[in-house]
Simulated assay, not measured.
Amino acid sequence: MAFDLETCRSKDELESVARQMFNVELDKRKKLDDLKDEVRLLMNGDDLLEKPEEPEEPEEPTTSSKAGKKPLQFVLNKNTNSVFIYNPKLKKRMGVDLEFCDQQGNRL
């Protein structure tokens, strides 16, 4: 019986096929559809490691930069008083429970 990727409903089956046919270990923590896409790439002769990366969101412009590197920004969680490095994905929480600060937690 030949392997049919479209009717496959098991991550274990996909992993077994990838291991036998391509000597590749799949990450079963991913969704079944994502694993099927990886096996499709392998069947088409593509390498999983050379998969094109998704473009990142453009970062906010900074006022000063050294050699093109963005300086670290820190934010303070008002609820827990913990300080951590700012990530653009936190943008929607800014002003609600996060505010910019220095590395010691002093509000800017």
Rank of each mutant, 00 (worst) to 15 (best):
A2W: 07
A2R: 10
F3L: 06
F3A: 04
L5D: 07
T7Y: 13
C8N: 10
C8M: 10
R9N: 15
R9Y: 13
D12R: 09
E13Y: 07
E13Q: 14
L14K: 02
S16A: 04
S16F: 05
A18P: 03
A18N: 10
R19P: 01
R19G: 01
Q20M: 08
Q20K: 04
Q20V: 06
M21C: 12
M21Q: 15
F22Q: 09
N23K: 09
N23D: 12
N23L: 06
E25G: 02
L26V: 02
L26R: 05
L26A: 03
L26T: 05
D27G: 00
K28M: 04
K28A: 01
K28L: 06
R29M: 00
K30F: 07
K30I: 05
K30L: 14
K31F: 05
D33F: 14
D33H: 15
D34F: 02
L35E: 07
K36E: 14
K36M: 14
K36H: 14
K36G: 11
D37V: 13
D37R: 07
E38S: 13
V39K: 00
R40P: 00
R40D: 01
R40A: 00
L41F: 00
L41H: 02
L41C: 09
L42A: 10
L42P: 03
L42W: 02
M43W: 01
M43I: 01
N44Q: 12
N44F: 06
N44A: 11
G45D: 07
G45P: 07
D46Q: 06
D47W: 01
E50P: 10
E50G: 12
P52K: 10
E53G: 13
E53A: 10
E53M: 08
E54H: 06
P55F: 08
P55Q: 08
E56C: 12
E56R: 15
E56P: 07
E57H: 13
E57Q: 13
E57V: 14
E59R: 13
E59T: 14
E60Y: 15
E60I: 11
P61V: 09
T62Y: 09
S64V: 07
S64F: 02
S64D: 01
S65A: 09
K66L: 06
K66H: 08
A67Q: 03
A67F: 08
A67T: 01
G68M: 03
K69Y: 07
K69H: 03
P71S: 05
P71M: 06
Q73C: 09
Q73R: 15
F74D: 08
L76Y: 06
L76C: 04
L76N: 00
N77L: 07
K78A: 05
N79C: 09
N79P: 01
T80Q: 03
S82V: 10
V83I: 05
V83Y: 01
F84R: 03
F84A: 01
F84H: 05
I85W: 00
Y86I: 05
Y86F: 13
K89Q: 11
L90D: 13
K91M: 12
K91N: 15
R93I: 07
M94C: 08
G95S: 11
V96S: 15
V96F: 13
L98Q: 15
L98K: 10
L98F: 14
L98H: 11
F100L: 01
C101T: 04
C101Q: 02
C101P: 04
D102L: 03
Q103K: 07
Q103E: 11
Q104W: 04
G105H: 00
N106K: 04
L108F: 11
